[in-house]
């Protein structure tokens, strides 16, 4: 089979669709890294959780994730209690109780009630995001907050630990079988020779929407500016009164939300297994690295590029698809480190 115009346009569309999702993930990685210096490897697990939760909801069943959310909440609650063991304040305890136990219980109850009702697909998608997003909060509290002052490398190894734990939890809560969600809209239309599915249009629109929303968040809101300030200079931000713990939590919740949305978008176009998220997330990484872990626009463009390379590689050398995508990153990394300012690492 050789490449003709029809196949090429099909490959381009495929690459664009995947690239759009990688762009979202890349953005979340850049966001988390610049604010907290955490390289957010468990992002892929949030994607898988999102897709698998949606697929389970589609089948009218109660997914495992609300229960998992509750477990995370309990862990965060206990850790907070432990850290306050010397100096317990009633109002802080009440807030802790509401945030770490009340919120997940509420979500769990709502899902138990709503799941069997066969609600419209948009509601199911919203429920999914609502279940996954608070996980960012608890994961930050449990794993990263105690290490907020650690080096990038320690935080990276922590991320690998969180990735392992969440991957294992994914297997426990969803099992080894892959699931595929139903598209939010299963229509399609032709545009010239091209068959465009509603789902892919939805992916493009959502990606653009989230990018615009992020732009306004960072440019126009005080919290957004606080996040940017933390990203530029953590200590300086603290000195002028920015609560860096709050900005850290915000970055993680935003990242978990974006990952859940990516899962919802990705779920209907490919079968997702508990461990699929990692590879999808890593491609977001390739894009984020190409963007120097700092630039949102370059990351987005690079993500589309990654999607394209992957799409064409799967046509020309499908066996070597992953090798090409991950092999490509090495020369880029070298170029970036030669360019980067060298400083002594402590």
């Amino acid at each position: 089979m050789h490449l003709d115009a029809t196949i090429a346009t099909f490959l381009i569309q495929d690459g664009l669709t995947n690239g759009a999702v990688y762009a979202l993930l890349g953005l979340a990685i850049v966001l988390v890294f610049s604010v907290t210096r955490v390289i957010f490897i468990p992002q892929g697990e949030f994607v898988a959780y999102g897709a698998l939760t949606l697929a389970t909801l589609d089948a009218g069943n109660v997914p495992g994730t609300p229960k998992l959310l509750l477990c995370f909440g309990v862990a965060a609650f206990l850790l907070d209690l432990w850290s306050w063991r010397r100096d317990l304040k009633v109002d802080a305890l009440a807030r802790n109780f509401a945030l770490n136990l009340g919120l997940p219980l509420l979500i769990y109850g709502a899902v138990l009630y709503l799941a069997p009702l066969q609600l419209p697909s948009v509601i199911r998608a919203l429920m999914t995001v609502l279940i996954i997003a608070p996980m960012g909060l608890y994961v930050y509290r449990i794993a990263y907050r105690p290490l907020a002052d650690a080096s990038v490398l320690v935080l990276l190894i922590t991320s690998v630990g969180v990735h392992l734990a969440m991957l294992g939890l994914g297997l426990i809560f969803f099992g080894p079988e892959g699931l595929r969600a139903t598209p939010l809209h299963d229509g399609s239309f032709t545009m010239g020779p091209l068959l465009v599915t509603a789902q892919s249009v939805l992916i493009y629109l959502t990606t653009i929407l989230i990018m615009v929303a992020l732009y306004f968040f960072f440019e126009k809101t005080l919290l957004g500016k606080a996040l940017r300030a933390t990203a530029v200079n953590r200590l300086g931000a603290r000195l002028v009164g920015v609560r860096t713990q709050l900005t850290g939590v915000t970055a993680f919740v935003l990242a978990a939300t974006i990952a859940a949305v990516s899962g919802v978008l990705m779920g209907p176009i490919t079968t997702i297994y508990y461990d699929t998220g990692f590879l999808i997330g890593l491609k977001g990484f390739v894009a984020a690295i190409l963007g120097g872990m700092g630039s949102f626009p370059v990351t987005a463009i690079a993500a589309i590029g990654v999607g394209m390379v992957e799409s064409f590689a799967s046509f020309f050398a499908s066996n070597y698809k992953e090798i090409i995508v991950f092999g490509l990153i090495v020369p880029v990394l070298i170029w970036l480190s030669i360019d980067a300012v060298h400083h002594e690492e402590e």
């Binding site: 690998v160 392992l164 734990a165 991957l167």
Partner: peptide, 10 residues
């Protein structure tokens, strides 16, 4: 084991 290892590492 994956879960335990992950938690152990952190």
């Amino acid at each position: 084991e994956m879960v335990v290892f992950g938690i152990l590492l952190v």
